[in-house]
């Protein structure tokens, strides 16, 4: 059994069919990219993985445990598409809050806060209220809250939106770092050059998983030079 297994998941909001019979699996220690245009159902799918949305049909297993499960939640770090931060509080206070929810001891917590803020390059802004942060800074702080409790699985919904190329590269280097420590990462994106950096890709369109495989496999299969072309051809545009 793979680390993450999505089995036959379908979901609809009212009469709108948002996900259709999704089957996918992610191996431990891989960076898995969920690629798809706006409205494809990426957020819906990752919310199901973390357990804050229950699919109408099908089930999801993570580390052999059926979602939702507190065991899974304990080992997962989640970064939502919108920055879920307390605006009045400083970055440190936001992190202290999330850290104590995960039950980190205060001495550990201090070290972890410094470490994750170092990672996202915000260590100089630790005591600034979040409402004074720029959009990209908030994005990075959200990422920091997901990394705080050293999760084994990271689920990141468009983590690099609004972040400049230099910092984006640094963040991807950090993902590689985490991966070397055996951490599995699931990211959603609609940026093609980011897709190329993933170990595995799932192409999602209108709630249907069109293809799954490594970037090179996909390019070979569809005889294209870039993921962008793969995407266009599976979409039937070519």
């Amino acid at each position: 059994m793979s680390f993450v297994e999505v089995r036959n998941v379908s979901h609809s909001f009212g009469s709108e069919n948002v996900l259709n019979q999704i089957q996918l699996s992610v191996e431990k220690g891989k960076i898995f990219g969920l690629l798809g245009p706006s409205g494809a159902g990426k957020t819906t799918l990752v919310n199901m993985m973390i357990g804050i949305l229950t699919p109408n049909r099908g089930e999801i297993y993570i580390d052999s445990k059926k979602v939702p499960s507190f065991d899974v939640i304990d080992m997962t770090g989640y970064m939502a598409q919108s920055d879920a931060l307390y605006q009045e509080l400083t970055a440190r206070e936001n992190l202290e809050f999330i850290g104590s929810i995960y039950g980190l001891k205060s001495s550990d917590l201090k070290k972890r806060i410094n470490a994750v803020m170092e990672t996202v390059n915000l260590i100089d802004h630790l005591d600034k209220p979040v409402e004074k942060y720029s959009g990209g800074m908030k994005r990075r702080l959200s990422l920091a809250t997901a990394l705080l409790h050293e999760p084994k699985l990271l689920i990141l919904d468009e983590p690099t939106v609004g972040i400049d190329p230099v910092l984006r590269k640094e963040i991807w280097d950090e993902f590689r770092n985490l991966q070397r420590n055996g951490i599995t990462i699931i990211v959603t994106t609609h940026v093609m050059d980011e897709a190329e950096k993933c170990d595995e890709l799932g192409l999602l369109r209108d709630g249907v998983l069109m293809a799954q495989g490594s970037p090179s496999e996909l390019k070979e299969e569809y005889q294209s030079d870039s993921i962008e072309d793969v995407f266009l051809s599976v979409g039937g545009v070519k």
Partner: peptide, 13 residues
């Protein structure tokens, strides 16, 4: 509305 409830529910609380 600010999404912090979802974030909280993604934690072991």
């Amino acid at each position: 509305t600010h999404g912090t409830l979802e974030k909280l529910l993604s934690t072991p609380i």
